[in-house]
Amino acid sequence: MYSGTADPASGTVEVVITEELDAASVPRFSVLLNEAADKHPEHLVVDLARCPFIDASAIGLLLDVHRRVWSAGGRLTLRSPGPRVARTLRLARVEHVLLVQ
C-alpha cells in the first residue's frame, strides 16, 4: 500500500510505502511518485520504514524521480529504510546520489 500527503506551507510532499517495491509494484509506485513530483515540492520524502523489500527496478525509478525533482529545484529523501532495504540501497550505492536518513 502507498499513501501520500502534502503540506503546502512547508513545501513537503511525503509518500509512505508499506509493501514491497519490486518489478510488479513499480508501475503503481511510479504513478504515485510522478503525481508527487508534479506538485513541484521543495522536499519529496519517501518513507520506507514499513517497506520490507526493494529491487533494482524500484531503485531505478527512485533515481529517475530524484533527477526530476532535483532539476525542478527540490530534493528527494528516503526516510527510515529497514535493515534489509538499507542494505540493498547501500549495495546499489545510492547514498552517493540520494539522501538516505
Score class of each variant (00 low, 15 high):
residue 99 L to F: 09
residue 77 T to A: 02
residue 19 E to W: 14
residue 59 I to V: 07
residue 96 H to I: 01
residue 78 L to C: 08
residue 50 R to P: 02
residue 23 A to Q: 09
residue 59 I to N: 06
residue 42 E to L: 11
residue 40 H to W: 11
residue 73 G to V: 08
residue 61 L to P: 01
residue 78 L to P: 04
residue 77 T to I: 03
residue 16 V to M: 01
residue 101 Q to F: 03
residue 1 M to E: 14
residue 31 V to C: 03
residue 36 A to Y: 00
residue 76 L to C: 04
residue 60 G to I: 06
residue 44 L to F: 09
residue 83 P to V: 09
residue 100 V to L: 06
residue 74 G to N: 05
residue 91 L to W: 04
residue 9 A to M: 00
residue 24 A to F: 05
residue 67 R to G: 07
residue 89 L to V: 04
residue 72 A to C: 12
residue 100 V to A: 12
residue 83 P to Q: 06
residue 30 S to A: 01
residue 37 A to G: 05
residue 1 M to N: 12
residue 12 T to H: 03
residue 31 V to R: 14
residue 85 V to D: 03
residue 37 A to W: 00
residue 67 R to M: 02
residue 70 W to H: 15
residue 49 A to K: 13
residue 36 A to T: 02
residue 90 R to F: 06
residue 58 A to Q: 11
residue 39 K to S: 15
residue 13 V to I: 03
residue 56 A to H: 11
residue 97 V to Y: 10
residue 56 A to Y: 13
residue 34 N to E: 07
residue 6 A to Q: 08
residue 64 D to K: 06
residue 63 L to K: 04
residue 29 F to M: 14
residue 79 R to T: 12
residue 79 R to P: 14
residue 77 T to K: 09
residue 23 A to G: 03
residue 81 P to V: 02
residue 3 S to I: 01
residue 78 L to Q: 01
residue 87 R to G: 11
residue 64 D to I: 08
residue 11 G to A: 05
residue 88 T to I: 10
residue 41 P to D: 06
residue 28 R to P: 06
residue 29 F to Y: 06
residue 13 V to P: 02
residue 76 L to M: 06
residue 70 W to Q: 15
residue 16 V to T: 10
residue 100 V to T: 07
residue 40 H to F: 12
residue 23 A to S: 02
residue 43 H to M: 02
residue 74 G to C: 12
residue 97 V to D: 02
residue 70 W to N: 15
residue 52 P to F: 08
residue 18 T to H: 15
residue 30 S to P: 00
residue 97 V to W: 10
residue 77 T to D: 03
residue 60 G to V: 05
residue 30 S to N: 01
residue 9 A to I: 01
residue 94 V to Y: 08
residue 74 G to R: 15
